[in-house]
Amino acid sequence: MTTKQFMIVNRKAPYGTIYGWEALEVVLIAAAFEQDVSMAFLDDGVYQLKKGHQTKGIEIKAFEKTFGALEDYDVTKIYVDQESLTERGLTADDLTIAVEVLSRAEIGKRMEEQDIVLSF
């Protein structure tokens, strides 16, 4: 099968809308199709990766476990925008999985290299 570079871009916070969750489903399927998948978290998207989600009270399934499964699917290119973290008072230590923290410009460059950018 042809392999293409897919980047899934997340710019929305979790729970307020379903986009983050359904984006993750796309990532897992793309990985199952053995595509070259990466994820980029920008703007409020970085909140999806924040540690310690306790979603019982809002009765919506938490993301955290699924992020942990990404490695099993060989999805290891997970880019997070440094500036978006800083703006929100977060650091890489606040995130639930290991990520590559990059500058905006660096993320922009990787975006340019993609065949397909799916944004949610």
Partner: peptide, 20 residues
């Protein structure tokens, strides 16, 4: 059909455009 159809569309098409 499944989400795989979206990935297949990405693979087969020259351009994929998102509207949302």
């Amino acid at each position: 059909s499944g989400l795989g159809q979206l990935i297949e569309a990405g693979i087969q098409a020259d351009r994929l455009v998102v509207f949302g």
